[in-house]
Write a protein that binds this DNA or RNA. Structure first.
Length: 106
DNA sequence: CCATTGACGAAGA
DNA sequence: TTCTTCGCCAATG
């Protein structure tokens, strides 16, 4: 897998910066990279990511899990194990749990 | 090389 | 608010 490309490694660097108990969205990471990689591209970058990278802290813009087809139940388990609460509808409250980036937005 | 498919998201209708 | 359409770009066949 092509996880050695520069944009991918940059994604990995950002994702490693997300603290335990917090989450980020694909679009958020895409914007952090100034749109140099689309939200879909972020997904590919994580799909190709090393196990060391906390890929489970990245969810979609609605607070939902987008990896059910890949690893059923896994991402939710991992998040709950670091105290990220889920609503009854299976989503995360982004207002409460979203990582606010290093410098706030501009 | 062309077409299709996503771990996506914003803008319209 | 829900459903569509379109843009995005890497990967796959």
């Amino acid at each position: 897998v092509a996880n050695g490309s520069a944009p991918f490694r940059r994604v990995h660097a950002w994702v490693r910066a997300i603290p335990r108990g917090k989450v980020a969205t694909y679009g958020q990471l895409s914007r952090l990279m100034r749109g140099r990689l689309s939200p879909v591209g972020i997904g590919w970058a994580l799909h190709a990511a090393d196990p060391e990278i906390p890929w489970h802290r990245v969810i979609n813009a609605r607070g939902g899990i987008s990896t059910e087809g890949h690893h059923p139940g896994l991402q939710r388990d991992l998040l709950e194990s670091e105290r990220v609460p889920f609503r009854p509808d299976g989503t995360v409250d982004l207002r409460a749990c979203q990582w606010r980036g290093p410098t706030r937005k501009r």
